[in-house]
């Protein structure tokens, strides 16, 4: 695992306030998640789906030297990057599926595992992504929490820990963001 020290280093750099390092992390995590998902999905029985949460955790174990005692918030930074990466992967996937529904791709060889509601689900995800982008523009911290909760599957407490905020704050962020996104989507 050649990329492992890189990610650990990058996380450490982010911890030290290196903003460029945060930018370098995202593509690395993104690649790793894709690769991991690909490998897992090809091995698993078809129809078996992958929980993004599990995927992110596994990527973390693979990318970050967990044996090293970490006093800094490497995990939080990693999950933040992973949440964004996961979001992009899912959105990309939903977009592609939409284009396929319009009869776009003759080379398609993928299997369809979803039922009748797949189209709605893809639409929902794309609308949510749009609303999330708006939320991000106005309340970036709250959007981060949503991403950690929704795309990494962290609990409010875990997300609070990753974001270094109190659980109560996280709860408030969450309540507001949920209401706000819901109102955006039902407008």
């Amino acid at each position: 695992m050649g990329s492992m020290p890189d990610v650990t280093l990058i996380l450490s750099a982010i911890e030290n306030g290196d903003l460029a390092a945060a930018e370098a992390l995202l593509p690395l995590v993104y690649q790793e998640l894709r690769k991991l998902a690909a490998a897992k999905l090809s091995k698993e029985k078809p129809g078996q789906t992958l929980q993004p949460t599990m995927l992110v955790h596994e990527a973390y174990v693979r990318l970050v030297d967990v044996n090293q005692p970490q006093e800094w918030n490497g995990r939080g930074h990693f999950f933040a990057a992973a949440a964004e990466a996961m979001r992009r992967i899912l959105v990309e996937n939903a977009r592609r599926k939409q284009s396929l529904k319009r009869g776009g791709d003759l080379h398609r060889v993928a299997l369809e595992t979803t039922g009748g509601g797949a189209k709605d689900r893809n639409d929902d995800l794309l609308s949510l992504d749009e609303a999330l982008t708006q939320l991000e523009a106005r309340w970036p911290e709250k959007a981060r929490l949503v991403k950690l909760r929704y795309f990494v599957g962290l609990t409010v407490a875990e997300a609070a820990q990753a974001m270094k905020i109190s659980v109560a704050t996280a709860e408030r962020y969450w309540t507001f963001s949920r209401a706000w996104l819901h109102s955006q989507l039902t407008q």
Binding site: R34, L41, Q51, P52, I89, L90, R149, L181
Partner: peptide
Amino acid sequence: FLEQPAPELDATMMFRK
């Protein structure tokens, strides 16, 4: 709403020509 994490990935998710 949003209480469940993102939809699961299925085998089509990674497709890119």
